[in-house]
């Protein structure tokens, strides 16, 4: 028998997850506008896979299926997976990634709320290691029509170096290897005012959705601010030291998955730190590692690896950053 309190706020996990999905829509809209509608096909495939995987695993585990589908958390995972992937990735990559995220990363650890790692990020890392070439073919903004995108997603011929390219980060990296200066590289076609051409708008869309989440108090300011600030500060330090070798902090904020990560990935409550100070440390750690991987690592984008590395540290961070309890003096915990 459940005791007091007898009244409850009309909040639910479903409502939280729905708000997150809603907050992703500005970014997705910008995506469709700038890159093409292929992403919608991928979202549909991923959503269907997520629901199927969730239902199947829960059935195997002997748990009720309906409430778990209803809570929409699987859809959030699926959408994040897709938004991290190139929009023309073949359908089976999406299916494998989403199934991996749901069945292995989430349910092998006990389901919703139990996974120590961010499912979408594990899926991204696994795919980029397993299918490096497929995972680095990005269409330039507006470079492919919907029919071509659909054909590619459904497994069409993939000899497309002429029309697909690399992301801004990738291009920057390749250019730097070729001993060009940052300024020269940034004048090349894939780059826009701030980051990759067109991708800036998508980042702005994510930013708008993130601000919505902040306004609705679904997330707190700690993680996005700490992440973006650390990323910008680290980038800024290197950029000031050597502007010819390192891109500006604005470029780093507007490129790759920085905005998506800041508001939707780093803020995953399940696998992230939970104390106010812990959140700042966690997100700052991701920002730092992400920049280091971008600038010096083997991959153009480092956020996913950074998230997983910091996920590993969460128990320690949480333990060491327990906030002061009412009436107790700081630092005098037993």
């Amino acid at each position: 028998m459940i005791q007091s309190p007898y009244i409850r706020k009309p909040a639910s996990v479903q409502r939280v997850m729905f708000t997150v999905l809603l907050a992703l829509t500005p970014g997705i809209a910008a995506y469709v506008w700038q890159v093409g509608a292929g992403i919608l096909v991928n979202l549909a495939i991923a959503s269907a896979t997520a629901v199927a995987a969730e239902a199947l695993v829960r059935r195997l585990r002997g748990r009720p299926i309906a409430p778990a589908i209803g809570d929409l958390s699987a859809l959030v995972t699926a959408w994040l997976v897709v938004l991290c992937f190139p929009p023309i990735v073949p359908w089976w990559v999406t299916v494998v990634a989403v199934t991996l995220a749901i069945a292995a990363v989430k349910h092998l650890y006990g389901g919703l709320g139990q996974n120590p790692f961010n499912p979408a990020m594990v899926a991204y890392c696994a795919m980029i290691v397993a299918f490096p070439s497929l995972m680095s073919q990005w269409p330039p903004a507006g470079g492919l029509d919907f029919a071509t995108q659909l054909d590619l997603i459904l497994g069409g011929a993939r000899n497309l170096d002429a029309i697909t390219g690399a992301t801004a980060l990738d291009a920057l990296r390749t250019g730097l290897r070729g001993a060009e200066s940052v300024d020269a590289i940034l004048r090349q076609p894939p780059f826009g005012t701030l980051g990759g051409r067109g991708w800036e708008w998508i980042a702005a869309g994510y930013l708008a959705g993130g601000l919505l989440l902040l306004a609705l108090r679904v997330i707190t300011w700690h993680m996005p601010v700490a992440f973006l600030a650390t990323l910008a500060a680290t980038a800024g330090a290197f950029w000031l030291a050597n502007p010819a070798q390192f891109a500006s902090p604005l470029f780093h904020l507007a490129s790759g998955g920085a905005m998506l990560a800041a508001f939707f990935i780093v803020t995953d409550p399940v696998s992230g730190a939970t104390t106010p100070l812990g959140k700042i440390i966690f997100a700052a750690g991701i920002g730092l590692i992400a920049y280091l991987i971008r600038a010096f690592g083997a991959f153009p984008e480092g956020i996913a690896f950074a998230v997983l590395l910091m996920n590993l540290c969460v128990p320690l961070i949480d333990m060491k950053t327990q906030p002061r309890v009412f009436g107790h003096r700081r630092g005098k915990s037993p």
């Binding site: 028998m1 459940i2 005791q3 829960r58 059935r59 002997g62 748990r63 009720p64 299926i65």
Partner: peptide, 13 residues
């Protein structure tokens, strides 16, 4: 003693 909260979450499918 207060009893352990009984939760009907494990309704077997």
């Amino acid at each position: 003693k207060w009893k352990y909260p009984v939760i009907e979450i494990r309704k077997r499918a």
